[in-house]
């Protein structure tokens, strides 16, 4: 399968490395390999119909900060002209207008190409438009990496739990907030120093509002609501309260009741919400640290919990690779049918 990688930062480079190390698994299992025919960062690109060496791209990016030639046209325009099977979109999440990812995904789906993305912006703002476009042009739109990093919540809910009625999904959807709340509770560190610790350890951005005001969790809750509950909402429809303002007194009062404070994203057929909640100690959602965790209630299976690393170069690449595998498998079964 020929892929175009758009966005070559943490995730993009992790995916290139994973392609290099896991191509033999794909070949053994599916009789086909992934070939990178194009790669883009914000200003440069490399294209080769016969395939680019993934590790060479990573080395080049690390050494020179660029992938190749300076780009003159927009990536969306170039994606219309290029020859590839699947776009892997990994540019930064933008929840103002979802660009540039939205144009990239529209260009690929519009041309009947499959799309795999880790980018939350287009999915949190234009989910239904993109899902409809994919359906109309009979292509795949897959986005496991966009929610929960390595945690396989979307594909599990949509594929393995396909016969279930999913009543609710509640989750720890942001590792930074969970780290801060866990530190406050286990070490008695006040909110501000706990946040600074998260920043020093590289979890939280210099401007942490995207995490601590619950915006990141709200994007994920909106994606889950659309993808799993069949709703048609955007991140702006998610009722949202973050963890700003939560102090040690509150955490201690919760502890006296044998509870912990956690920022919980909650999705039901009625909508989505992100808010701090009092979770009984011992409940799966009382988990400490930076992991993401999803607690799903269904009619037949009852309760199912899945947890994993919510971010990271290889962790996120793991979810992208799972989608690559599925797209290759689907393409193969369509090829066998034809």
């Amino acid at each position: 399968m020929d892929v175009a990688l758009v966005g070559f930062g943490t995730v993009g480079q992790g995916v290139a490395e994973a392609i290099a190390t896991k191509n033999h698994v794909l070949e053994q299992s599916l009789g086909d390999k992934v070939r990178i025919v194009a790669a883009f960062d914000s200003s440069t690109y490399a294209v080769d119909k016969s395939g680019l060496d993934p590790l060479d791209l990573v080395k080049r990016k690390a050494a020179k900060g660029k992938l190749g030639k300076v780009r003159k046209d927009s990536i969306a325009e170039m994606l219309k002209a290029l020859d590839y099977d699947t776009l892997v979109e990994m540019t930064p999440t933008n929840i103002k207008d979802a660009q540039p990812g939205l144009s990239h995904i529209r260009a690929a789906l519009g041309k009947g190409r499959d799309v795999i993305t880790s980018n939350k912006g287009p999915l949190a703002l234009k989910f239904r438009e993109l899902a409809n476009l994919a359906e109309k042009n009979e292509c795949e739109l897959r986005f496991e990496a966009s929610v929960g990093g390595a945690t396989p919540v979307i594909n599990m809910a949509r594929e393995l739990l396909v016969c279930e009625r999913i009543c609710s999904i509640r989750g720890i959807m942001n590792g930074t907030c969970n780290f801060i709340l866990s530190r406050m509770e286990s070490e008695g560190i006040p909110y501000e120093p706990a946040l600074r610790e998260a920043q020093q350890m590289g979890f939280a951005e210099a401007d942490p509002s995207y995490d601590i005001d619950g915006i990141d969790s709200a994007c994920k809750a909106a994606i889950l609501a659309n993808a799993i509950m069949g709703l048609d909402i955007t991140v702006h429809d998610v009722e949202r309260t973050g963890i700003r303002g939560i102090n040690l007194d509150a955490v201690n009062l919760a502890m006296q009741e044998r509870k912990v404070v956690r920022l919980i994203g909650e999705v039901t057929s009625r909508g989505a919400e992100v808010s701090p909640r009092l979770i009984p100690r011992g409940h799966p959602l009382s988990i400490s640290g930076t992991l993401n965790l999803f607690h799903i209630r269904t009619d037949l299976a009852g309760e199912i919990t899945v947890a994993g690393r919510g971010a990271g170069r290889y962790e996120t690449a793991s979810a992208v690779m799972a989608d690559i595998y599925t797209v290759m498998k689907l393409r193969r079964s369509i090829g066998q049918r034809d």
Binding site: N247, L248, D249, A250, N252, L253, Q256
Partner: peptide, 16 residues
């Protein structure tokens, strides 16, 4: 109602 016992200005209360 239960109040926190703390000297900080932002207090907390538990309502059950």
């Amino acid at each position: 109602v239960k109040y926190s016992i703390s000297s900080s200005k932002d207090k907390a209360a538990h309502i059950s």
